[in-house]
Design a protein around this nucleic acid. Sequence first.
DNA 1: ATTATACCCTAA
DNA 2: TAGGGTATAA
Length: 449
Amino acid sequence: MATPVGFHALPLPIVQLSLAAVLKCGQSFRWSIFPLLYASHGDIAVSPTSPTHEYRFCLRDRLVCLRQSPDTLFYHTVFPEVPTSPTQKALKEAETLTWLRDYFQLDIDLMKLYEDWSNRDPVFNKLRSRFSGIRMLRQDPWENLVSFICSSNNNISRITKMVTSLCKHYSPPLLSLLPPCQLDKLGENQEPESYHPFPPPSVLAAPEVASVLRSLGFGYRAEFIQRTAAMLVTAHDLDTAADAREPSEKWLMTLRDLDTSEAREELLKFIGVGRKVADCILLMSLDKREVIPVDTHVQQIAVKHYGLRASSGTKANMTPKLYDEVNTKLAKVWGDYAGWAHSVLFTADLKSFSSYGLPSPSSPAISADAESLGKEAIAVPPTPPLTPSPSPIKRRRAREVTSQPEQAVAIRDEETLQPDDSSFSGSASSLADRVKKRRRVTVDVATKL
DNA sequence: ATTATACCCTAA
DNA sequence: TAGGGTATAA
């Protein structure tokens, strides 16, 4: 497989990382995804293992572009200004590689983890071949925090729109770039897209942000975001180092050094952050690999496949107690990297992945067909799409873009494991506690640095 | 200490 | 009419 022009090649088996799965399974909401459509015949030589997509992510100073073949990750960096010398350029690409290793946590051997989870858990074992390469990203905590405040009572599609719109409105474009060459669109003249970094806390802390976000369709989360940003900025004076991370962002990073429960306690002080959102942040950007965020999906998975008692009422809400029950049970099943394992199951449960390998949630998915899903591994290699498929990046003029709700689809009616007497750990903090803790945030944090 | 209800918006 | 939650008030 030839390296695409302008790209660097990093050898990496796709079982270690599947971009197609990881970048749209609800961890990060800021990756642009472009289908690459090749002519099946013609003068362009294409192997069946050619990358099917390009993925783009905007950092504060550069745009990272990725493609993937079964054994190679291709990366390419675009800067606002072309690097002066070739040496300079090489240096910059090396930085990008460093970022990639960190962001995708490439030092963690995913095969070993899959092996371990398979031994521990027959349910996982059934899925491993169909959902390989799903690993946890190591995201920026600030971006992660805001994104997941957006996630409450919401679906991936809308969260993505909200985050995109947030960036467009509150951070200037870093650069503009044409979409990658798409042969089906050779005739059409394509518009360059502008790429925006994630806005820093000080920008979102401004009081008027709440109402603006509201008008942008953020709903009640608008206030959460603005107030959380304000809390953060207030607690950590900005001594504004122009281009770098702000102090409050750095402080969020230091939560990586705390114990899980300490870090969680800090996160829960923010407005709009409850247990579930806090756990998402712990897992996805604060290195707490054992943490399992429990949403209604995960709860259903736990009931269906792991013998957890169904919630008492017909329509019971997620109580802290139930949350801990689910959490403890699954943590026990999956062990040290339970949060990572959860992500595989969670992804497998997304409707858009019921036909994993096919590009679009709108394709007539085999979806609700729990039967076919459970049978032998179909091991579908990602097939280059034959027809143009709607990408999430379709230009959106109006705010009403049809979106596909990510719904649950049964993984499989498997023999349920016998219920396990799980011990409860941890306890929800009372309202009073939380109020006190919130009041203390400034003081606490001030003494911390 | 637990439990119920509103919340913003979208899809069904 | 319910949803990939959280903040409030009972």
